[in-house]
């Protein structure tokens, strides 16, 4: 990337779970200020682990960043606690939404403002801001989030993260379990938040089509390594990405046997 100083920069990190399981084997990536960057890859490629090593939610899952540097606005942030990171402006929206089911939508949003110290009035303004982006949440403000729909829960989780006034949101698998139309709606809002509120996003997605449509840049992870990266447009046109992640191929329909054969011959990994 050509920008001067990226908002977030990861250099060559290695993550080990339970002291033995090596999950990330030297991942490096950059998120420019104001960018939407996508991490793509199959199950178990290390997308979520990458996000969690930034937000340090890894710690409570017995994972450890054993090598490498994570820098946010030039400052090394390895090992800071999640709440310190939220104060600095890095917040993660976890895979599977994770709203507080016995709290109402509004209480969820208020809980998201826990680290703020700028007073009730500012927080109330921001709740209104969240409702402007997610009008559906306003309708459901008094409902327990355990009872609202999956799409509304995802909106609530993103809204809750916004309440911390973050500079960077780590968005883990926002499309999980949602109808395609709803996924599109949520990505549209992400894009608007990016443009209008200046929030940068680093998102982990399996839905490659959708992610590359909205992201500016993408990294492809396989077995804990970055195997390819580039502008979203470049990745969209790349033959391998088309073949493996977008389910398209140049030669029209192919039988699965051909695909397998092709995969055996050509791997990104040595």
């Amino acid at each position: 990337m050509t920008q001067a100083a990226p908002l977030l920069s990861i250099q060559n990190i290695e993550v080990i779970y339970d002291h033995v399981i090596l999950v990330l084997k030297g991942v490096s990536l950059d998120v420019p200020a104001g960018g939407i960057v996508a991490i793509l890859g199959a199950n178990g490629a290390g997308k979520s682990t990458t996000l969690k090593s930034i937000s340090n939610l890894l710690q409570s899952e017995r994972g450890d960043v054993t090598k490498g540097d994570i820098r946010f606005r030039g400052e090394r942030i390895n090992g800071l606690s999640p709440s310190e990171l939220v104060v600095k402006g890095v917040i993660q929206v976890m895979e599977g939404r994770h709203c507080f089911p016995h709290l109402t939508v509004e209480e969820n949003l208020l809980a998201g403002a826990y680290t703020r110290t700028d007073g009730a009035a500012a927080i109330a303004t921001d709740i209104e801001l969240v409702y402007r982006y997610f009008p559906r949440l306003k309708e459901r403000r008094e409902s327990l989030t355990g009872y609202i729909s999956g799409g509304e829960q995802q909106m609530c989780a993103i809204g809750r993260a916004l309440m911390a006034r973050p500079k960077l949101i780590l968005l883990d698998e926002p499309s999980m379990g949602l109808a395609p139309q709803l996924v599109e709606e949520i990505f549209e809002i992400v894009k608007r938040l990016n443009r209008e509120e200046g929030v940068s996003f680093l998102l982990a997605e399996q839905n490659t089509t959708m992610a590359l449509k909205y992201a500016t840049y993408g990294y492809i992870l396989e077995n804990g390594r970055v195997v390819m990266d580039g502008d979203a447009a470049t990745l969209r046109e790349n033959e391998d990405v088309k073949e493996f992640y977008l389910g398209l191929s140049a030669g029209g329909r192919k039988s699965y046997r051909d695909t397998k054969h092709y995969r055996r011959r050509k791997r990104w990994l040595a």
């Binding site: 937000s55 939610l57 409570s60 999640p82 709440s83 990171l85 939220v86 104060v87 917040i91 993660q92 929206v93 976890m94 994770h98 709203c99 507080f100 089911p101 016995h102 709290l103 209480e107 969820n108 208020l110 809980a111 998201g112 826990y114 680290t115 809750r160 993260a161 309440m163 911390a164």
Partner: peptide
């Protein structure tokens, strides 16, 4: 409120700081 949030889902509570 934070206490109730932690009770509901401590991972999520951690994630919002």
């Amino acid at each position: 409120r934070a206490l109730r949030a932690v009770a509901d889902d401590n991972q999520a509570a951690l994630s919002v700081g």
